[in-house]
Structure formats: structure tokens, C-alpha cells
Design a protein around this nucleic acid. Structure first.
Lengths: 191, 191
DNA sequence: CCTGTCAGCAAGCACCCACTTGCATCCCCT
DNA sequence: AGGGGATGCAAGTGGGTGCTTGCTGACAGG
């Protein structure tokens, strides 16, 4: 593999577990099997390196929208939620450290505005809005709020599951499906 | 105020924003208006100090149970949820850093087992179970799962709101009430 | 065959870190 | 009035940090 790639990968793994301060240039170099100097020759500084690591981390969260024309909400939302959950569970360590450091290093931000989480929520909210316009969802519920709720539940589960196992069931898959089920009944969508 | 208390308070504030590595003994001493040596004389080491800070942080999350005998679930759960939300929003910074570091410093753990989050979820789950036994909640839903969902939604909102404002409404209070409303309808509780 | 690029290696720089020591100072308690 | 415990101050220790410099060899392209 390319040297530059090896460095980025090692740095990403380190960052996810020990954060910015814990990710020392010496450890990155050692983990990547590369001389420490090489790292500076490629990226200039540690901060620039980590900035690229984080930017790459964020870029994984590009998410496809839900169907433009809602068909069967139960399966469409369930599948979307499972994808959302899987992606976030996979990157849970990265998200946790990023969440803990975003106020300390606000200068390292995704170039996109609004940030990925808000954009993903907006996708679901737009879908719900269409559902509502077609009269298939209770009119007294704000789509954005409902979306925030379901996404919040998925997000919290994906991110805390490894740490607080006792709170959850044994099968993330079944849990997610139940969340969606409760959610759909809650917003008055009958399938 | 007591010197020891001033140190603990400064350390807690620092830890919440910059984490373990960022919380240097020099900064703690400066913020507390105390000589750096005093800090070591009181706590022995930085690790011991932070351990106490974290232990105190956790101890705030002792939470009263819901009513033993469910009356009106809508108001009882809503008020409980609002308290849960308020407490977590207040300690959001602490929780975020803790969440990002718990796998790096697992030795610093709350002395209670299971950890506070799981215990709080258990309180809600127990309440739902009673509701279910009385036939006031759908029987095909696992109380623990439902509890995890609502708490997850509240948790994610409380913790990410300051960072991803665009995702949420302007009033946390109304958002929480709507979450509860959707939740209750979703699990088949009619008020 | 020469030249330019890339990487390794050894050494070092200035700085910050947690933590220690020795001594002066204060102030409360008896 | 005196003694003891808590605090401040100055200085320093060893180690880790980001980053730099100068030199080496490998290797590909003209």
C-alpha cells in the first residue's frame, strides 16, 4: 500500500481510540511502519494530518436519500434505519472521540455545511414531509422533530452499545426494527 | 470556598472541555487560584484527582424512579423525561468527553455496577413493564427495548444539540414532549 | 550513466508535562 | 506566646512532544 495511505490509516485508527492529543507522531509512524520524518514531509504538521483524517472520516457519512415517492414506509424506513445504524456502529469510536473534541478543536470542521448529522436528519425529515402531505402521517407532528427522535435513538444506540451493553438487547438488528416499529405507529403511519 | 473544593471544581470544568490529556496540572492550579504543589499535596497525582472528578460527575446521575403504581403515563413519563433531559443537557460536555475517553481510560469507572445510564434505563423499563402487566401497553413490545429507544432519543438530543443546532427545533422542552408523545402512541399507551 | 525523487536514519532542539524538594510564611489552636 | 498544619514560592528532574537538519541509500527516467 501507498505510504501516504498507510500513514492516514494508522492515524485514523489511533485518533479514534486516543483522540488528538493521544495520537502522537511517533506512534503514528510506528504503527504505519514508517519513519517519523516521512510523516512531516507528507503532511507538513500533525494538525494538517489529523485534519485530513477527520475530513476523510466525515466523508464516509454521505448518505443516499429515501425514495422520492414514498411506497411502503415500513420497509423503506426500516432498511434506511438499518443502513444508518450499521454505518454509525462501524464508526462508533471515531464519532465518540470527535464528539468529545469538537468543542476543543472547532477549527477542524467538515467543509460541508450543515454538518453530516443534520443533513442525514434532513433526508428523513423530507421523506416524512412527503408522507404527511399525502395524508399518510398524523398532521399534528412536525416531521423534523419526528426525524430527530428516530435518528437520535439510532445514534445513541450505535454509539453507546459497546460501553453500556446492559441497556440493550442481544441483536442490534431486532432492536432497530423495534425502534422503527414504535416510531411508525407513533407518528400514525399504518402499513 | 475550601481549597480542595476549588481544585475539584476547576478540574471538572477543564476536564469537561479538554479531556484528560488537555487537563494539565498547571492549568487546574491556575484556574483554581492555587499553587500547583498544593494540588499534589491534596490528591497525590493527577490521575487520582481526575478519578475523583469523574466519580463526582457520575454521582450526579442518581435518578429517582417513576411511580411504583402507574397513574397517568403521559404526564408521568413526560415529566420524568424532562428531568432526564435537563440533567443530561446540563452535563452534556462532561458526558461527551467521558464518552470519548471511556475506552482509553477504562480503569476510571464508576464504582456502581451497572453504570448509571443502564440503571436509569432500567427504571423506565420497570415502569413500562408494570404498565404492560396492567394491559395498558401493547404486549408485543419488549419494555427494555422501548425504554432504550426513548432514552436514546433524549440522550442524543441533549448531548448533540449544542453542536448540531440545525437538527432540532428552537425549544428543547417542546421537542422532548413530542418525543414522549410519539413514543407513547408508538407503544400503544392511550391517555 | 547521471540525476532527481523518495524514504530511512541519527541526532538534536525547544518546549511542555507530571511530579519533587527545600524553605519561607501564615494562621489557628492550645 | 508558641507550635503545628496548611499553603505559597522557586527551582529542578526526567521524560515525552512536535518538528528540524544533514546525511545516507534505493530506484526510476532521461
Amino acid at each position: 500500500m501507498d505510504v501516504r495511505e498507510r500513514i492516514l490509516e494508522a492515524a485514523a485508527a489511533l485518533y479514534s481510540t486516543v483522540g488528538f492529543r493521544g495520537t502522537t507522531t511517533r506512534r503514528i509512524a510506528a504503527d504505519a511502519g514508517v519513519n517519523e520524518v516521512t510523516l512531516f514531509r507528507h503532511f507538513g504538521s500533525k494538525e494538517a494530518l489529523i485534519r485530513e483524517v477527520i475530513s476523510r472520516g466525515w466523508s464516509r457519512f454521505c448518505f443516499e436519500a429515501l425514495p422520492e415517492q414514498p411506497g411502503d414506509p415500513a420497509t423503506e424506513i426500516a432498511e434506511w434505519a438499518l443502513r444508518y445504524y450499521g454505518l454509525h456502529a462501524e464508526c462508533a469510536a471515531f464519532i465518540r472521540t470527535r464528539l468529545g473534541e469538537f468543542q476543543e478543536h472547532p477549527e477542524i470542521l467538515p467543509t460541508t455545511e450543515p454538518p453530516p448529522p443534520a443533513r442525514i436528519a434532513a433526508l428523513l425529515a423530507a421523506y416524512l414531509e412527503r408522507l404527511q402531505q399525502e395524508g399518510r402521517m398524523r398532521p399534528d407532528i412536525r416531521p423534523a422533530r419526528a426525524a430527530a427522535m428516530l435518528i437520535g435513538a439510532l445514534f445513541a444506540d450505535a454509539i453507546t452499545r459497546v460501553g453500556v451493553v446492559q441497556m440493550y438487547g442481544t441483536s442490534p438488528d431486532e432492536d432497530v426494527r423495534q425502534y422503527v416499529q414504535i416510531f411508525l405507529r407513533g407518528i400514525g403511519v399504518t402499513s
